[in-house]
Structure formats: C-alpha cells, structure tokens
Design a protein around this nucleic acid. Structure first.
Lengths: 217, 217
DNA sequence: ACCAATTTCAAACGTCCATTTGAAATAATT
DNA sequence: AATTATTTCAAATGGACGTTTGAAATTGGT
C-alpha cells in the first residue's frame, strides 16, 4: 500500500518547499530533482522548463490554500469593518498554517523580491480578486469624501500590516538560532486580534483625518 | 575645471545606482564597470571583490542620508507620539528624496530580498540605533501594561507602514508604464500626514486593546 | 512474448559571471 | 632621464546552472 507518487507529483511537492524557501532564482533545478528523488533532466521532461514548473507550483498551492483560507464570504460593502477584520484574520491564519498552506505566503514573500514577469503573472492570475474586494471594503469604510489617492494609500497601509508581518515571520524561520523579530506565536489568534485592532484603528484615524481636513473640489 | 572623479569614485557612484535598482545578485560587475567607464577588472583592483564594493556603497550612502534625513532629535521616551510622527515623516521624506538619498531605502528594499549575510551586516552596522529608539518610543506609548510580545508586534506593525510604502514606491518606479500602486506623489508631505495618522491611530487602538483586555501575569 | 510509447538516466553543451593574470600604459619618485 | 610604483586593459580561467542529447530502462497494449 505504498502508492508512491509519480515523478511529476514528487517534483511539485519538492518544488513547493524549495521555491518557497529560496525563491525562484536561488532554487536550482538540481536540488529540486534531488529532493524529489528524480533525475536532473526530469524537470525539463515533465514541465518543459523551470519557469513552467514554478507556475504549476503556484496553481497547486493557490488552489489548496483558497479552500482552507478563503476570503470572507460577506460582501465587503455591507459591513466593511467586519469584512476587513475577517480578511486579516484569514491571512494571518494562512501565514501560521501548520500544513502546506503557509508555503503560499512564503512563496509570495519570495516572488515579491525577484524582478521577473512571474510577479505580474501571479498577481493577475491569483491575487487580483482579493485585491479588488479589499479596495471595495476600504472605499466603503472611508466614506464618499475620500479621494482615490487617499484610498490607495489607505489600502497600501492596510495591506502592509499583514504582508510585513509575513516578511518578519519568514525571516525568523530562516534563522532559527538568531534573535527573532516576532513574538513567539503560541497563539496566532491573539496575534491576529492585535493586528486587526491596529489595522482598523489606522483606517478609522484615516477616515477622521479625511473628514476633518476636508478636500478641495 | 573638469576635475573628473577618480575611477574609485566613479565606481561607487555607478554602483549606488545599479545596486539600488537591481539588488546585489542581479547587478553584474561588468555593467557597473561599464557605467563607471572603467575596465572590467577595476572593481577587483580597487575593492578586492564585489561584496566589498557593496559595503562601501552602503557606507557612502548611509552617511549621506543620515545627515539629510536624521532621526528625530528629541528623546523617544518623553513625547513618544511626537517622536514617532517625526520618525515616519523623516523616513517618507527619504523615500521621496529627489537627490541621491532615495537610493538608500531603495537599496534597503533590495537587500531585504536577498538572503545573504550582507543583510545582517547592514542591520547591525547601520539600522540598529534607529531600531532601538523606535522600540523605546513604542514602549513609552503603549504604557507599562504591554507585554514584550505585544510591543514587538506593535513595532512590526508600525514599521511595516513606511517600509511597505517604500516597496510599493520602488515597484512603481520599476514599471513606469504599468498601473501604479501608489497615488501620484505631488506632495509627499500630505502623504506623510496620512501615514502618520494611520500609524498613530493603529498604535493607540493597540493601547486600548491592551488596557481593556488586560494581561495575565 | 513482442513491439511501441513513455520515462529515466548520465554525460555533455552552452551561457553567464566573478575573478585572475600578466602585460601595457601612466604616474610618482629619485 | 631613469627607475619604481600604481593603474588600466584585454583575454583567459573556472565554477555554477539550465537545458539538451541519445541511449537505456520501463511500461502498456496486443
């Protein structure tokens, strides 16, 4: 009852881990094949080239994580504050997922660092829907007086929180021995709570700023 | 009255730009030498190797930017809110500096992406003092009830704002044609104002959360 | 058992890039 | 002017890595 996975499957599995830990450029085809117990030529045979393997890894991982850590179901416009809180929580649970799903934000962290068209491909293919729903929630929360520029900046500030948290977490994973940036995460839920609070506090303060200063036009 | 800079100086100048735009690994010695109008062997002759050139670039840039965009002078403990606001403003002015100084956050953005001991070197050599003063300001602002973990997380959230803003700004610079993440920055000061407001709003909300839920201990 | 298609394999190829080398050119010293 | 030290230069070296190749091994169908 071994049912050893096919070479192709083993390559994907190995590539998920190695791409996530080292990024696209620093990962070598040789080490992926070695980890998958496959020949050096296996990647090119089964996937054509390294880049296509990378795309398959994304497809595999994203599909998996979208099931376990989906976007909040409610409409972002109706209860924007609630929606944004749930969104953050989902992202943080994904970061600290103990299964395979934490490889997705890890991979995301990596790809943001390499300038390649792969980044655009990933954003357009996988990230845009979530991005647009955040946009709508923030628009609803800030109210009709906010300018597009103010919304964009608030969006950046909002997203920066969990994304940067992810960066810190990835760094901590890399160097287990050294001093850690993050608190020990005995309880991701409590951590998520604090990030939620910071994010909403920031957004509401932004709303106040906008309403009090008013805008020309 | 030409007074053409020495080869060594030209190499540094060229390397600042190229390292900042492409990062350490993607920048080649050949292109740096070409931009500096120097021979391919010039880097090794004047600096020993590529890595050492990189360190010299940091020393040069950091010194320059520390003069133009210094940390706030006040003690972080006395008026933490004021100090943190000034800190953010200084960082944002640096990001949008129109001279050479914007290369520093750009370089910082790059180095965070490459896993190399250079990152640790840079942090320990240049960034630690600023880091510690932020720590103290946040500690003062959150009050004595906050746990170390809560402070660490608040610190991450706070720093994430301008760091992630920098990331977005760098991305926008890379692909001028494509859709931009950030608002057009006609006025960095107004942008800084909104980030300040978000940051302090977030921190104060965090303080409220801590005081209301209370901590065991 | 035989043939054809698929998959695996070790070796080789080609490219990119940091670094070295040793000679040539230039500057500094006497 | 002659000698020495410094700097520049083109070419070569060597290593890393993605990809190709063609033969060998395995699998599937009849």
């Amino acid at each position: 009852m071994k049912n050893k996975p096919t070479t192709k499957e083993r390559l994907i599995q190995a590539a998920v881990v190695i791409f996530a830990e080292k990024g696209y450029h620093n990962a070598t085809v040789a080490e992926i094949c070695e980890a998958a117990e496959a020949n050096i030529a296996a990647v090119n045979y089964h996937f054509g080239d390294k880049e296509n393997l990378y795309r398959q890894v994304w497809a595999f991982l994203f599909e998996k994580s979208a099931l376990e850590h989906p976007l909040p179901t409610a409409l972002p416009e109706t209860e924007p504050e609630r929606w944004l809180r749930d969104f953050i929580r989902s992202r943080i649970e994904e970061i600290f997922d103990t299964g395979i799903c934490h490889r997705l934000p890890q991979l995301l962290h990596r790809i943001k660092c390499e300038h390649t068209e792969l980044h655009d491909f990933v954003f357009e293919t996988y990230l845009r829907p979530g991005h647009e729903r955040v946009t709508r929630a923030i628009k609803a929360l800030l109210g009709p007086h906010a300018t597009d520029n103010q919304r964009k900046l608030a969006h950046i500030n909002f997203m920066g929180l969990h994304i940067f948290l992810n960066v810190g977490h990835q760094k901590d994973k890399e160097k287990k021995n050294k001093r850690q940036h993050l608190p020990a995460i005995d309880d991701p839920s409590e951590l998520a709570r604090q990030v939620e609070e910071f994010a909403l506090g920031g957004l509401l303060a932004t709303r106040n700023l906008i309403q009090h200063t008013g805008t020309i036009s």
